[in-house]
Design a protein around this nucleic acid. Sequence first.
DNA 1: GTTGAAACTCACGGTCC
DNA 2: GGACCGTGAGTTTCAAC
Lengths: 155, 155
Amino acid sequence: MSGLDQTDLAILRILAADATRSAAEIGRSVGIGQSAAWRRIRKLRESGILAGRRVVVDNAALGFGVTVFLGVRLAAKGRTSLDEFERAVTAIPEVQTVQHVLGQFDYRLRIIARDISDFERILRRRIMTLPGVGQVEANVMLSEERLPGPLGALG
Amino acid sequence: MSGLDQTDLAILRILAADATRSAAEIGRSVGIGQSAAWRRIRKLRESGILAGRRVVVDNAALGFGVTVFLGVRLAAKGRTSLDEFERAVTAIPEVQTVQHVLGQFDYRLRIIARDISDFERILRRRIMTLPGVGQVEANVMLSEERLPGPLGALG
DNA sequence: GTTGAAACTCACGGTCC
DNA sequence: GGACCGTGAGTTTCAAC
């Protein structure tokens, strides 16, 4: 029970699609005034539902054209080995995301490389030398599509 | 060969962490004026490196506390079966990201659910009934950490 | 809950060094 | 490249309904 009405959901959908829209414009789209729209946006921010704004950086435009997803299974699991692995993996600059997961693997990593041979270097020198690394599985990304997600499932 | 200097990289790092910072504020942080900082930001936008602004929506605050990563292998692969699968999977509201990948799986999905039993419903009713689905592997996310990525690897 | 209007800040452009 | 200075637009707050 988040206490959100249809207007709040409509505002969230608009902002999720394009964060540059102004409060006045959003208000017009959902049928309320600029001030009312702004207050709702502030409330969404204060409630933690809107958890910040980020720019989208095009890694390919920066010369990093290869994205690889890596499933990592640790050889030995323990409290210390998880901490140790996380500390070491977050220090690798090519690692963009670290996800601690449950299932066949213990961690999922999103890795950015300039090209495939650059990725091989990262895998051999950086990843395979991490403390406690066991089985590793790689998937090279061809394309990615983001969808509205839960905002589409609500209302 | 992007023609970026240290100041551009510093601006990118600041914006990647928090897109609400103003040009004047950023300029102060990197040692240039408001107008110069703004001109650099516009250039980064025009060159495609800054590819948009997004709000971060906290799914847990919306009542969707479970995130699952799903590797999907298609039973039969062909141009039509890829198109057909993508069309069907993007229509599922709980699917937040669709990644076409190369490797053990053909697709990686990021799925948002209210809880584990909600995820089971999505898996049985929505995912397993998709056209051409073969092997499926799930990983439940415990925690996620985003890192600077390539911005940390440059300069 | 709403509107309307202040005051302030910012984005954006022009101009000159 | 850089700083400096306008202008119009957007944000944020406040008073009133």
